[in-house]
Amino acid sequence: MPNTPEFTEHVENDLREIATPAGVLRYYDAGDGPTLLFLHGSGPGVTGWRNFRGILPTFAAHFRCLILEFPGFGVSDDFGGHPMITAQGAVTPFLDALSVDRVDIVGNSMGGGVGINFAIHNPDRIGKLVTIGGIGTNVFSPGPSEGIRLLQEFTEDPTRQRLVDWLNSMVYDQALVTDQLIEERWKLATDPRTLASARRMYGKAAFAQMMAMMKSADVPMPWALMHKVSAETLLTWGRDDRVSPLDMALIPMRTIPNAELHVFPNCGHWAMIEAKAAFESVVLGFLTRS
């Protein structure tokens, strides 16, 4: 599979959609081989394509790569409800609709949490699991983190400067926050329907309600269930992540039975973008290891 701008442009222009019992989902499909499912994170103007377009050519040379666009983030339709819960409910119907029985998963931030949820409930359908930051819980660092607080502030009152402040918190090298990136994110992040979906997740009242619910006796915290993941798991993290600080990795690293951790130096929350070459090498080695 050629690692060329023409290849990437061709895939970007081939956005597909499929009807599922949950609703219509949109996705990208590139490459041949075992199926590798990419699950994106959350935040203003995020899409699966923007999270993974840079690394797609490398992985499409070895795998059939599916990039799922979660409902409510501006590409797939908004199914209503809490976006993370909706995302968790979208993966199995999506794979069923494509007649995919078994997958490896790469999940960025929220997508890693969705991947863990899928692995727990579908142990016979998951091969290997790769997460990129975003899971676990704060052990030494205060919570919510700087990046989450900036995300909440943008969601409550979306201004261009708040978007820039949040984007700067996502990376170690702020030169990556280009005018093109800002414009790309701003356009989708301020779309009324996408913003309404974001407020159901990161609005201060909604966030507080979610935290209270998760702390209730009836709902176990997500990190308390990670011992149920039987899949081989690679946790990847940016050492300088200001959204999900590195100490969050300690519990999943210790409690997921078959987990290993790789930390990229001089790297923030977007390891697949900021440490692209190293990320590709580490993850490809993990996925292809016997």
Results as ranks from 00 to 15, higher is better:
284 L>D: 07
236 T>F: 03
132 I>R: 02
80 G>K: 05
71 P>L: 08
31 G>L: 08
143 G>L: 10
147 G>V: 10
202 Y>S: 07
27 Y>A: 02
254 R>A: 15
148 I>N: 10
94 F>G: 00
22 A>V: 14
157 D>N: 15
15 L>C: 11
88 Q>A: 11
211 M>P: 00
237 W>A: 03
67 I>Q: 01
134 G>H: 04
147 G>P: 04
33 G>I: 10
238 G>M: 07
192 P>G: 07
51 N>S: 14
209 Q>M: 08
244 S>K: 00
93 P>F: 07
56 L>E: 01
194 T>N: 12
223 W>C: 11
114 V>Y: 07
105 I>E: 04
145 S>K: 06
187 K>M: 13
29 D>F: 08
197 S>V: 08
169 S>I: 09
194 T>E: 06
207 F>M: 05
66 L>Y: 00
281 S>H: 09
40 H>T: 11
235 L>I: 12
227 H>Y: 11
256 I>N: 07
185 R>K: 14
120 I>Y: 05
101 D>F: 03
188 L>G: 10
164 V>E: 14
156 E>N: 12
23 G>Y: 08
264 F>T: 05
230 S>I: 04
240 D>N: 15
132 I>F: 03
17 E>V: 02
103 V>F: 07
134 G>K: 01
154 F>R: 07
71 P>W: 03
71 P>Y: 04
268 G>E: 09
150 L>E: 14
106 V>S: 01
95 L>A: 04
279 F>Q: 01
269 H>I: 12
153 E>P: 00
67 I>H: 01
271 A>L: 05
16 R>E: 09
128 K>V: 09
179 D>G: 12
123 P>C: 06
181 L>Q: 13
111 G>S: 08
76 S>N: 02
79 F>Y: 14
128 K>G: 05
67 I>K: 00
113 G>H: 01
197 S>I: 07
78 D>C: 11
79 F>M: 11
245 P>W: 10
102 R>A: 09
223 W>N: 12
177 V>W: 11
32 D>K: 11
98 L>I: 10
49 W>Y: 06
47 T>Y: 00
230 S>C: 05
290 S>V: 06
289 R>H: 15
282 V>Y: 04
66 L>N: 00
17 E>C: 13
135 I>C: 13
39 L>D: 02
176 L>T: 09
54 G>K: 03
66 L>I: 10
30 A>F: 05
180 Q>C: 06
54 G>A: 12
200 R>Q: 06
